[in-house]
C-alpha cells in the first residue's frame, strides 16, 4: 500500500511536466466546457456535447495514459529500478491505475458541471466504471508493448474504435449494430437515459462481458510477459 501511494505521488510529480499525458486528461473537459457554452442549436439534445465527449473521454484518456505510463517505464528501465527497490508489479500497476482513474475523475467532475445535481452521482458512477475498463485495456497494451512507440501504435486503433464508434453510430445503423458490442456504446446509451433504471439486461451483459474480456486479456498478458 505504501509503495502504491509512492507511485501515485511520483505520477503526480511527473504529470505536471508530461505534456502528452496532461493533454489527454484536460483536452475533453475543456472542450466540453467550450462547446456547451459556445454552441446552442434548436433541437439539439440537452447536454449533447457533454454526453458525446464523455464517452470519447472514457475511450481515449485512461486507455492511452495507462499504456503510455507503463510502456515508458518499461522502455526507460525505470520500472526495473522500482522492482529492484522492492516495489511489486501489482503495487506499481495499482498505483498507475488509481492515479489515472483519479485524474480522469477530476476531468469528469469538470464535465459534470452542466448536469443537475441529482444526475451527477449517476454520471460520475458511469464515468468511473468506464475508466476501469479503459485503464485495464491500457494496462494490457502497456504490458504487451516493448516500447512507448509500439504502445502508441497499438493504442491508436483501439482508442479510435472505442471512442468514435458511439458517435459514428448516430449516423449509421450498421456501425450502430457493431458498436453495440462495445462498452463505450453501452455507456453512451446509459448517458442518454441518465438512470440505472433505464439500463436493459442486454446492455449490462455487454458491459460486464467487455470488462471481463479486458481483465482476462490483462491477466493473460501479465502472466506471459510480466513487466519485463
Amino acid at each position: 500500500m505504501k509503495n502504491t501511494a509512492i507511485i501515485i505521488k511520483k505520477q503526480l510529480m511527473d504529470t505536471v511536466k508530461n505534456k502528452t499525458v496532461l493533454i489527454q486528461f484536460v483536452l475533453f473537459p475543456i472542450l466540453t466546457l467550450i462547446m456547451e457554452n459556445a454552441i446552442k442549436l434548436d433541437g439539439m439534445p440537452e447536454l449533447f456535447f457533454t454526453k458525446l465527449f464523455s464517452v470519447m473521454y472514457i475511450g481515449m484518456a485512461p486507455l492511452s495514459a495507462a499504456a503510455a505510463i507503463i510502456s515508458e517505464e518499461k522502455e526507460k528501465n525505470t520500472l526495473r529500478v522500482l522492482m529492484m527497490a522492492d516495489v511489486s508489479p501489482l503495487e506499481f500497476l495499482f498505483g498507475v491505475g488509481i492515479y489515472v482513474w483519479s485524474a480522469c475523475m477530476i476531468g469528469a467532475c469538470v464535465m459534470a458541471t452542466g448536469f443537475e445535481a441529482k444526475d451527477v452521482p449517476f454520471y460520475l458512477a458511469v464515468m468511473g466504471a468506464g475508466y476501469v475498463v479503459s485503464i485495464t485495456a491500457g494496462a494490457c497494451i502497456g504490458t504487451a508493448a516493448k516500447s512507448q512507440m509500439a504502445a502508441t501504435s497499438l493504442v491508436m486503433p483501439v482508442m479510435v474504435v472505442f471512442s468514435f464508434a458511439p458517435m459514428l453510430s448516430m449516423f449509421n445503423d450498421h456501425i450502430k449494430r457493431v458498436a453495440g458490442f462495445f462498452y463505450t456504446q453501452q455507456l453512451s446509451v446509459l448517458f442518454e437515459r441518465m438512470s440505472f433504471d433505464g439500463a436493459d439486461a442486454k446492455g449490462v451483459v455487454i458491459l460486464a462481458a467487455n470488462a471481463a474480456v479486458m481483465f482476462m486479456l490483462f491477466f493473460v498478458t501479465f502472466k506471459r510477459k510480466g513487466l519485463e
Binding site: 511520483k10 510529480m13 511527473d14 511536466k17 526507460k76 528501465n77 526495473r80 522500482l82 516495489v87
Partner: peptide
C-alpha cells in the same frame, strides 16, 4: 544496484528522482 541500462525519470529533477526512492527505502 546500478546497471548500465538503468534509467532515471527524465522529467523529474535530481532531487525528485531520489525522493521517490527515499520514500520507498
Amino acid at each position: 544496484i546500478t546497471m548500465d541500462n538503468f534509467g532515471v525519470y527524465d522529467r523529474l529533477s535530481c532531487a525528485d528522482n531520489l525522493k521517490i526512492f527515499a520514500d520507498i527505502y
